[in-house]
Design a protein around this nucleic acid. Structure first.
Length: 786
RNA sequence: GCCGGAGUGGCGGAAUUGGCAGACGCGCACGACUCAAAAUCGUGUACCUUCGGGUAUGUGGGUUCAAUUCCCACCUUCGGCACCA
């Protein structure tokens, strides 16, 4: 099954086809992997036959908790376990006929690879984009590890499902928010499907508004808030601080009830905060502020519905025009003051009026303006008065980058008592993971590396005094942030990849992956790429790493449920291959449905594909020795099939490509089943990306030269695609009344004459006079009769 | 609540610059081969019908000679986000 491998700098057009590299788990390749990789493989094989220089690499994203947990349980080295698992994965991939560039395999746990992951971190630190901060983080008590917001799902740990709690831990944090706008704008230069773009934009959550300063009564402090509705400032009757806000810490904790409220909310896990979601709680802080628009003194409250991590951690409350503020005001008996007159009446006893329609009332300089004009007018007014300005806020948070685990990249930082945090000098990279006895994380929240004194103790790279290494490791995403760059130059010891090779291969032309990565891996890796772009480490003319993004679907069990061991509905690709062979397995999973759909496994349907390949083989065997001229009808069928497959494969429409091949085989048999080997070989080439082993064998039987996979994709004769005659529909008053077969290029008069001659048509034409005839050549003729 | 998809036979699904709805496969029925079964091959298979025809692509409207396709309103469902000011 020879195929052409990727060749650096080849003059042919390049095509970089990438499927998300897998985590090599102990349970081996599952059917979802088989589905995704087969789709990618069909695409890659097709591109090779088109004469492209295809880069189709694979590697191992091998750092991670399952391997570490396995090591904890069995006492075996994660390195050894990983080596075994990757060997199993590769063997299974080859059994599936996946034509990866296996000689370019990279492994994120290989020190010669993570050397560069570590260097990227150092660069982030040097550019001020990585900082260490003690902060409350999501903590999984079961995994004993800190989690990024992205790794907490409905208050539970994404990996083990345990409810998470909060802990204050000193963490490395990466300033991804610095790139928020670019991560949105850069999407314009990609061809991602709408759903992926929307997910990313949504996740970043950009909102435009204003910051406004409120004076505090009796204090030499100002309280700054963020709002998207500066027009409603005149209706703000109170303010609310997050419990963790510094003003609460500084001025309010001497009140016992405040103290208690702050303690209670601090102890709440995210899960508990969710459960009480719309039941507002709060306490009066004891502070008062002055509404800068009305000059009125308004109370400052504390509530945990205000989040410290968004905006400024404090809000102005406008209960007339914000539902959450309305809920809070209603609960605690605070004033609700309408300052927008809706075009029809509004009952403020029932809810806040939040529409952007209506006219401002009781609002000083913006009085009488429609809401949409009032927003910018309010911002200008704030500027003139020197109390506020337009600004932008994001839902995206900075990226917590520390993990208290063994099986990850050591963060290459050193703490010196006199110099503070210093990066390891580049010459000392990689900082290798030392061998340890115990892989368990510690209850204190430190990684097991902290127990290895001879590794931890080092000297400061700046002053040479004794210093200590960082013992946290990087999150899983670190290794996968840039792996697509390494594939262009996998073994380069001097750079993460050679600039010329990057220029040749990048960007990734098609990136195939799961929707679960649309807001995590995909965003993180775009961020790291943009950062590297700013450093000049990747080609200047390539601003985004991925051009096109394809989502792959999901295969459910035969019972329409997600496959899981507990359901007992798991389909193992190895079993299917053993029973039906690689070609049937591949062709079936491609035939199941659209590439991005969710589909249930159906063994009976698989048998249909098996029959098809058997019938195809029978045809090849009977025709291999013959030299009979192929009939024009069959020749046309074959050319039409190749034409359809040529259009479907580049669009990942594998299901209809297989269907067309089935239809064509049926058509050939219906037309006598006699095909010259030269013509049949075209059909064999068309199925080659889908059923590579079958095609190779058939190709040999039919006298093909070399490997079918190295052959040039067959040329379609456009003359053969056009039929001389076409069957067109005949409509009378919009209803189908018959069909006629006419010459393809028949003019209207000829078509009309043929149509009138049809009895079932003529009958209806007699019912009135013809007012109009619409003729669409080769499609339809339509009579309007009155 | 916000954002993004999707609703077509018994089932998976085809068909989009608007032009014969249901390709292909499964299932089912009947037939051939067989002592029989399996496998294989062949034929049929949206629904209703007074056999003229009529009705059908989530629901209700609209545009058009013509709508699964375009427009408006709604329903259901899947995925993402969600006390984000």
């Amino acid at each position: 099954m020879a195929h052409r491998h990727a060749i650096d700098f080849d003059p042919r057009e390049k095509k970089y086809v990438l499927a998300e590299f897998p985590y090599p788990s102990g349970s081996g390749l599952h059917i979802g992997h088989a589905f995704t990789f087969t789709g990618a493989d069909v695409y890659a094989r097709f591109q090779r036959m088109l004469g492209k220089n295809v880069l189709f690499p694979i590697g191992w994203d091998a750092f991670g908790l399952p391997t570490e947990n396995y090591a904890i349980k069995t006492g075996r080295k994660p390195q050894d376990v990983t080596a075994e698992n990757t060997a199993t994965f590769q063997a299974q991939m080859q059994r599936l006929g996946l034509s990866f560039d296996y000689e370019r395999i990279v492994n994120t746990t290989d020190p010669s690879y993570y050397k560069w992951t570590q260097l990227i971190f150092i660069k982030l630190f040097e550019k001020g984009l990585a900082y260490k901060q003690e902060m409350p983080i999501n903590w999984c008590p079961s995994c004993k590890v800190g989690l990024a917001n992205e790794e907490v799902v409905n208050g539970n740990c994404e990996r083990c499902g345990s409810p998470t709690t909060r802990r204050r831990i000193s963490q490395w944090v990466v300033r991804i928010t610095e790139y928020a706008d670019r991560l949105i704008d850069g999407l314009d230069q990609t061809d991602f499907i709408e759903k992926v773009k929307a997910a990313q934009v949504n996740w970043i959550g950009r909102s435009e508004g204003a910051r406004v300063k409120f004076k505090l009564v009796g204090l030499d402090e100002e309280l700054e808030i963020f709002t998207t509705r500066p027009d409603t400032l005149w209706g703000s009757t109170f303010m609310v601080l997050a419990p963790e806000h510094h003003l609460v810490q500084e001025y309010c904790l001497n009140h016992p009830e405040v103290n208690e409220y702050v303690e209670v909310s601090r102890a709440k896990s995210d899960m508990e905060r969710m459960e009480i979601s719309y039941e507002k709680t709060g306490v009066y802080s004891g502070l008062s502020a002055i509404n800068p628009a009305t000059g009125e003194v308004i109370p400052v409250w504390i509530s945990d519905f205000v989040l410290l991590t968004y905006g400024t951690g404090a809000i102005m409350s406008v209960p007339g025009h914000d539902q959450r503020d309305w809920d809070f005001a209603t609960r605690f008996g605070l004033e609700i003051r309408p300052i927008i007159q809706p075009s029809s009446g509004w009952d403020y006893d029932r809810a806040a009026y939040t529409e952007h329609e209506g006219v401002m009332i009781n609002s000083g300089p913006i009085n009488g303006m429609p809401v949409k004009e009032a927003i910018p007018a309010a911002i200008s007014w704030l500027g003139e008065m020197g109390i506020g300005e337009a600004t932008v806020s994001y839902h995206l948070r900075d990226w917590i980058f520390s993990r208290q685990h063994y099986w990850g990249e050591p963060i290459p930082m050193i703490f010196c008592e006199s110099c503070g945090w210093q990066p390891v000098s580049e010459a000392d990279l990689p900082i290798k993971l030392p061998e340890v006895e115990q892989y368990e994380p510690t209850d204190t929240g430190e990684s097991p590396l902290a127990n290895i004194e001879e590794w931890v103790d080092t000297t400061c790279p700046k002053c040479g005094q004794p210093a200590r290494r960082e013992t946290d490791t990087m999150p899983n995403w670190a290794g996968s942030d840039w792996y697509f760059l390494r594939f262009t130059d996998p073994f380069n010891p001097n750079a993460l990849a050679d600039m010329e090779k990057l220029s040749y291969w990048m960007p990734v032309d098609v990136y195939i992956g799961g929707d679960e990565h649309n807001t995590l891996h995909l965003l993180y890796s775009r961020f790291i790429y943009q950062f590297l772009h700013d450093l000049g480490a990747v080609p200047d003319h390539i601003p985004e790493p991925y051009y096109r993004r394809m989502s792959h679907g999901v295969i459910l069990g035969p019972d329409n449920q997600r496959m899981s061991k507990s359901h007992g509905n798991v389909i193992v690709p190895d079993d299917i291959i053993l029973e039906y062979g690689t070609d049937v397995t591949r062709a079936y999973i491609m035939f199941m449905g659209p590439f991005d759909a969710t589909m249930a496994w159906n063994e009976r349907a698989l048998l249909g594909v098996k029959r098809f390949l058997e019938r195809f083989e029978k045809l090849v065997d009977t025709q291999a020795g013959t030299r009979q001229e192929t009939s024009a009808a069959i020749k046309t069928l074959i050319h039409k099939a190749v034409d359809k497959v040529s259009k479907d494969l580049p669009n990942f429409k594998f299901n209809t490509a297989v269907a067309k091949l089935m239809e064509t085989l049926n058509g050939i048999n219906d037309n006598g089943g006699s095909v010259h080997p030269d013509d049949l070989r075209m059909l064999v080439q068309a199925i080659a990306p889908l059923a590579p082993f079958f095609a190779e064998e058939a190709w040999q039987k039919l006298g093909g030269k070399g490997s079918v996979h190295a052959s040039d994709w067959p040329q379609v004769d456009p003359e053969l695609l056009k039929d001389d005659t076409v069957e067109i529909s005949v409509q009378v008053n919009g209803k189908l009344r018959g069909t006629v077969t006419i010459a393809r290029d028949a003019d209207q008069a000829a078509a009309e004459a043929e149509a009138r001659a049809v009895e079932s048509v003529n009958k209806y034409l007699q019912e009135g006079t013809i007012r109009k005839v619409i003729y669409i050549p080769a499609k339809t003729i339509s009579f309007v009769v009155k």
